[in-house]
Design a protein around this nucleic acid. Sequence first.
RNA 1: GCCCCCUUCGUCUAAUGGUCAGGACGUCAGGUUUUCAACCUGAAAACAGGGGUUCGAUCCCCCUAGGGGGCGCCA
Length: 475
Amino acid sequence: MSEKVITRFAPSPTGYLHIGGARTALFNWLYARAKGGKMLLRIEDTDRARSTEGAILAILDGLRWLGLDWDGEPVYQFARAERHREIAEQLLAQGKAYRCYASAEELQAMREKAREEGRAPGYDGTWRDRDEAEAPAGIKPAIRFRAPREGETVIEDRVQGRVVFANKELDDLVILRSDGTPTYNLSVVVDDHDMGITHVIRGDDHLTNAARQTQIFKALGWDTPVYAHVPLIHGPDGAKLSKRHGALGVEAYRAMGYLPAALRNYLVRLGWSHGDDEIMSTEDMVRWFDLDAIGRSAARFDFAKLENLNGHYLRAMPDAEIVERLKALVLELPEGAPLEKRIGPEGWRKIERAMPGLKERATTLVELLDNAAYLFATRPLDLDEGAQRVLDQAGRQTLAALLPPLETVEPWEAAGLEAAVRNFADAAGFKLGKVAQPLRAALTGRSISPGIFDVLEVLGREESLARLRDQVHAV
RNA sequence: GCCCCCUUCGUCUAAUGGUCAGGACGUCAGGUUUUCAACCUGAAAACAGGGGUUCGAUCCCCCUAGGGGGCGCCA
């Protein structure tokens, strides 16, 4: 009973659920599921200025979309401030914390001086042993944790191994602000303890926090949870993942047409592995996941691999389900509303019928929908100006002249036809590079490529178009 | 600046004190498909550098370089 694993995912609602957070959530979820434990969700909203309702919604939404559920109701950290304050007062009463009257300016000067002297730019302990009688009037004190000065704090991390911090490197951090609100490191310790968290799995940007939190745990006489600090995810260039890399919220990946299963599979392999296994079901992950197999080095985010996986899951998905997902997705796209209107019930039926040919050509849902455009395009087609001009001048006639009626073309003529079309397209500078290939598909009547309808229409091949439509509808 | 962490093909990674250092994505070349995609086959592609320890180091130790994280009355 007391051995039951309880993990938590603890995002701060200051933005969307980004890709690193998503992986952290996934790891926590997997570990809890793998060990038959629970994953709790805690919203760390103690920074009132930066926390927003919208961000909370985005995070919950992102988790749900990814298929990561949590046990019980989310815990809102801000709501527990009173409890945190209590603990701070308790530490104060026990002499394990003290009041600090230093002003912001003093602290700033302190940091600069320390930096000049080559020390860590932390708090110098001015009020650690100073008599409160000397406190300046009218200043509301903050409460600082009286951190040990001697010895070392050791973290036995399940991923990073044994990490040792010299206590002199860790300064006395504020646990209760002068306005009486608790700070992160205190809240985390109290909440992790009260929530019965057994395993803390988070990004390794929290490694030093683990040392500070360990000190607080000890001062309180509480057991520390097991720590597992997972390396961060970097952008394709190796630098920290940022907006410019597409370090977007998971909802952005949804909008780009990625599937939750693909993202889960991609994410789980970033920093964790199980032999040579690449494609694995969620059941496989749960069966195989363990902390010991998490690597210690940062991983770069690679869209190419994500796309490959997404294509795999797309092809494996039942047609009807893809249509359902497309319907849900279309409104998220730019110009989504008019697009949806244009597709209409008939369009969705056509898409589902054409799905076998569609889904094996697309790597994302968005690409698939794009490829399906010929099924519901507004006729006549709206060409861009340049293309229109080329066609008007000589192209339409010339090209059309090259093509005999489809009915009269024998299969072995197709290749020659293709070459002719391609040459024309090149010479005209018209973007008809794609003309030739779909044309051949039309001639052979098999595996219709997306776009052939548009091509024939542009060329004014009404009879061919009609024939092709019949073929498709016959399928 | 100080503290902590990391370093195997371009990318994600596996393995081992003695291997042709394996897989996947990507790339390239074939095949299949009279298109494309998918699929199949094949190829190129890595142990950061320098010292040790050892009969032997990619693997163990040290140093260097490079990368990352942290150093708030943010989380």
